[in-house]
């Protein structure tokens, strides 16, 4: 009989300060469920975030958490994964943190392919700082910093990820938490960098991209029987869809690509954490010197 952890195991006692009805609640719930369904225990998980409403998420879960400075969770997460590959490393941050301030790290992570899962809470606005337009805000979007409407075209994160070499690209909608939990679980099982861009209404500052706005447009890629997520050209076409119809699901998945940490020679003899653990368990001073030489 297969047992499953109780998602409540991941509950934290910290007071939640998200706005009532925020889409982040659904992401939090889906992540807990995805971890429980995979029987991953709290001590086996590290959530790394940046700055923003969604980046408060590690505080609301009973797991290891690390809040970095704005836009920097991806390199911190990559380093954590290199130090301890046994850890399930998840990055959770918003569209501004991921695609704006951390835009360079996003591109480099796509091509580097570390074995981490990246959940982007994409509400197309900077919510924590009271509603400024973000990299994914649609052209013409009126905010405090774009009173005449956003001038720039919105960044297309899925197309950027595909062009930069990401090996797992998915899009979920916070209004449909169950398929989102499934996508997060599949992203975690993928060996390599997994991007899950979650369309998440900001109920306070984004009055355009609401639950209803998305409900009318989103559709499940699985409904298209002929769609093959391993087809890069098809994924590119789907990544262009917006406004009229918005595809949800796994847009692209390339299996068999080596993860970044698989190719780091310094890790061939084990990760730093596993070596240290071994030394603590079986202290042999003659081991210290070669290890010191290797790392110094």
């Amino acid at each position: 009989m297969v047992t499953r952890l109780d998602p409540k195991l991941f509950d934290a006692t910290t007071e939640n300060t998200w706005c009532a009805g925020c889409g982040d609640f659904a992401i939090l719930k889906a992540l807990k469920l995805a971890l429980a369904d995979q029987n991953i225990e709290p001590h086996q998980v590290l959530a790394v975030s940046g700055i923003g409403c969604g980046s408060k998420l590690p505080d609301y879960m009973n797991i290891n958490g690390y809040m970095t400075i704005h836009g920097r969770p991806l390199p911190v997460a990559t380093a954590a994964k290199l130090a301890n590959p046994d850890l399930h490393v998840i990055v959770v941050n918003g569209d501004g943190d991921s695609y704006g301030i951390g835009g360079n790290h996003f591109v480099q992570s796509c091509r580097r392919n570390p074995n981490i899962t990246h959940i982007v809470e994409n509400n197309q606005i900077y919510g924590l700082t009271k509603g400024q337009y973000s990299p994914t805000s649609d052209k013409g979007f009126v905010t405090t910093t774009s009173p005449d409407g956003s001038i720039e075209l919105a960044l297309n994160p899925l197309a950027v990820a595909l062009a930069a070499g990401a090996t797992f690209i998915a899009r979920a909608f916070a209004g449909q938490p169950k398929p989102m939990a499934q996508m997060i679980a599949e992203g975690m099982q993928h060996r390599g960098y997994a991007l899950i861009d979650v369309l998440q209404p900001c109920v306070t500052f984004n009055r355009v991209n609401t639950y209803d706005w998305y409900r009318k447009r989103v559709y499940d890629l699985q409904e298209e029987e002929s769609y093959d997520p391993s087809d890069r050209e098809a994924a590119w076409q789907k990544a262009q869809e917006w406004e009229e119809r918005i595809p949800l699901g796994i847009l692209y998945r390339a299996e068999g690509m080596p993860a970044y940490e698989d190719q780091v020679k310094a890790l061939e003899g084990g990760s730093p954490v596993s070596r240290l653990t071994e030394l603590v368990r079986n202290p042999r001073p003659e081991q210290y010197e070669p290890l010191k030489e290797e790392f110094l």
Binding site: G21, P177, D212
Partner: peptide, 16 residues
Amino acid sequence: PDPLFDSHLFLGWVVS
């Protein structure tokens, strides 16, 4: 209906 749709999501529709 999505079985994970909870009171927070329900409220989200109204707050919007």
